[in-house]
Simulated scan of single mutants.
Amino acid sequence: MTSSAMTNVDTLIDPPGHIRAMRRAAETAADAAAPLVDLYRPYVDGLQNLPRDGRFLLVGNHSQAGVEGFLIPYMVRREIGHLVRPLTDRGFGKMPFPVADLMAAFGATVGAPESARELMRHNQPILVFPGGGREIAKFKGEQNTLRWEGRAGFARLSVENDYPIVPAALIGGDDVYTSLTRRDGLWGRLSQGLAERLGGKPDMAMPLLRGIGPTLIPRPQRMYLRFAPPIDTTKPAGIDEQDWVATIRDETKKTLERTLDELLAIRAEDPYRELNPLAWHRATQPA
């Protein structure tokens, strides 16, 4: 039996009692984890760019580690006190109890236009990854890049609702594993064919990976997160809406790519980039 906790628009703002109780428990656990997060010392910059009223759309990049799904909402709530609402793949809404309810407790909802519009109507901070699942599995040479494949739904909804966009770039998650194969190589083609047969999505192919040595144990990596200044999506008079949507999409993508490059440069000079305990006190910090 599946749960409607992530799919029912009517319960997005006012969830059932058990979801509210799970949410309070999750927030208590997150608050208790603050000393551990501080000890780990992720590099976090641009918190001053977060609108204090919580009315904004975070647009981020997926990584192989998946840590962005935790770190971005955690830092936003810690800074401005608002629960971030991640938009997830429709498949997560079909997961059995209690998985879907647990994800709903953390604020997640299925990424449908009607859900996003309802959240925007209530001025909720929303998190979206336009690359979706295809951006998680990185083949050789694809690390720290965006794979949006022309997606512009987030820009269209932002323009329709005059919702500011805050690009949120994360570096480090793609370096916990090394990709051994290229997408256009033999394994890449075989993997794409298998993915298409099993799920109809060849862009969800999996590369061959290794972590520490020849194992799949992830390599320790510091995470670098930066929130860029908000992008105003209000359409100027006299401009076609579709053209403006494309402009907002392109500006968001360029800003995110530029911010990723900036973080790569910062990481290259950071002695703590691989979480070497001896370099903890010399870890690069935001200016």
Rank of each mutant, 00 (worst) to 15 (best):
D14C: 14
P15C: 00
G17M: 08
R20Y: 02
A21F: 06
R23F: 01
A26G: 03
T28Y: 04
D31Y: 09
A33M: 10
A33C: 08
A34P: 05
P35Y: 03
D38V: 07
L39Y: 15
Y40R: 15
Y40C: 14
Y40Q: 15
P42H: 15
G46R: 14
Q48W: 09
N49Q: 13
P51M: 04
G54Y: 10
F56N: 01
H62K: 14
Q64P: 01
G66Q: 13
L71G: 10
I72A: 11
M75A: 13
R78M: 03
E79A: 13
R85P: 00
P86E: 13
P96Q: 08
A100M: 05
A100H: 02
A104C: 06
A104D: 03
A105V: 00
R117Q: 12
E118R: 07
M120E: 14
M120I: 13
M120R: 13
H122M: 08
F129A: 06
G132Q: 03
G132V: 01
I136S: 09
G141D: 02
G141R: 02
E142G: 05
Q143W: 02
T145M: 11
T145W: 02
L146T: 00
R147I: 08
W148A: 07
W148S: 05
E149Y: 12
G150F: 02
G153K: 09
G153L: 09
E160F: 04
D162C: 07
P164N: 08
P164V: 07
P167W: 02
A169D: 01
I171M: 10
G173D: 09
G173A: 15
D174L: 02
V176S: 11
Y177A: 07
Y177G: 13
S179L: 14
L186P: 06
G188R: 09
S191G: 09
P202N: 15
P202E: 10
D203H: 11
R210F: 00
G211E: 02
I212D: 07
G213S: 00
T215C: 04
T215G: 06
T215Y: 04
I239V: 13
Q242M: 14
Q242F: 05
Q242N: 12
V245D: 07
V245I: 15
A246Q: 12
T247H: 12
D250F: 00
K254T: 11
L264S: 07
E269G: 09
D270R: 03
Y272N: 02
N276W: 09
A279T: 06
H281E: 14
H281F: 14
Q285G: 04
P286A: 13
